[in-house]
Every structure is written in structure tokens, then in C-alpha cells.
Amino acid sequence: MFDWSRTSPPLLTLAALLIAPAAFAAGDPPEERQKVLLYRLIQDCGSCHGMTLKGGLGPALLPETLKDKADESLTDIILNGIEGTPMPPWAFETSASEAAWLVRVLKKGAVHDATH
């Protein structure tokens, strides 16, 4: 099937604005991939957690709500979901290191700051 996530230019416009705070470091996904992951975080995770990640059907994903939770368990939740709840597993399109990077971004509030 045609892969829109890689080809659609409007898809990247919003994410491009968000890239700055998520500083590039060793172990981080390549920049192009970061844009795709951040766009998905806002738009698709946002459909349950709110586009500003302040919560919806799913809980808020903000630094203050996540700070006491272990990185490993949050990474595991993103990859494998939480059975019996609407939180679905994302491993089919997210690697373990990408999920760990998302947790770092969420805990820093980097996405949230950039959307304001």
C-alpha cells in the first residue's frame, strides 16, 4: 500500500516545528523518523490522550503525571499496551528504542512546550 507517512509533505509541517526541543543525542531515532513519531504522538496518541496530551479517554501524558513512573514500564506500555483497557500496543510500528525516546520526550514535556 502507498505509504503516506513517508511521502505526504503537509504531514511534516507541524512536526517540523516540534523537532527543536527534542534534542538529538546518541540513541535517539534519526531526525526524519523523530518527525514522524512526534506527528503521530500529537495526532494519533492525541485521539485518546488529547492533542495537547492533557488527557482524554486516556490519562494525561505530562511531565507532572509521568514523573514518578519508571521509564521502562512506560516504554513497555507503549510497546505492548495495557490489556483490558483501550491502550493499544504500538510495537508493530515502533521499535523499543523509539518508544524509550518517546518516554524521554514526554517526561521532558518537550512536545507539550512546542505546541504552545
Binding site: D44, S47, C48, L57, G81, P86, P88
Partner: peptide
Amino acid sequence: GYGKGDKPLPVYKM
């Protein structure tokens, strides 16, 4: 029981 006991598939949007 419309799912006939099968494990539900993940839901990426409600």
C-alpha cells in the same frame, strides 16, 4: 458475546 470469545484486536482509535 459477539466476539465469540476470541481475543480482541487492538483498537487504535475508538
